[in-house]
């Protein structure tokens, strides 16, 4: 039997506007990855773009999509930052 874990999901800039959400508490299952959280969010918010071109952060650090989440984590989905011409 698996117990649901709660994580906080945050969206910024264009992704925040596309979802209309800046922060959302979501339930996930143990073993869930950052990628599976994003896939679940895309199911709820079809306007979200495909995963390529988006970065993920876990507890304020950039992470790979296959990192596993834990209870109480903060997951953020981040569009490319502004950059700027050199």
């Amino acid at each position: 039997m698996s117990v649901a874990i709660a994580v906080r999901v945050r969206f910024f800039a264009r992704l925040r506007e596309l979802t209309g959400v800046d922060v959302e508490e979501v339930k996930s299952t143990p073993g869930a990855t950052v990628a599976s959280v994003y896939a679940a969010m895309r199911a709820d918010h079809p306007a979200l773009p495909r995963q390529d071109g988006v970065s993920a952060a876990l507890n304020h650090e950039f992470v790979d999509w296959n990192v596993t989440i834990s209870e109480g984590d903060e997951v953020a989905f981040i569009p490319p930052v502004s950059g700027g011409e050199i």
């Binding site: 910024f12 800039a13 264009r14 506007e17 952060a57 950039f62 953020a76 981040i78 569009p79 490319p80 930052v81 502004s82 950059g83 700027g84």
Partner: peptide, 27 residues
């Protein structure tokens, strides 16, 4: 400019855009 999560929304003559790296994406 490449690693700090800060985004720019540009209000320009041809519209309003989020600047994402080299790309501009309509709002």
């Amino acid at each position: 400019k490449e690693s700090v999560p800060i985004w720019k929304k540009e209000h320009a003559a041809d519209g309003t855009f989020w600047i994402e790296g080299d790309e501009k994406k309509p709002v």
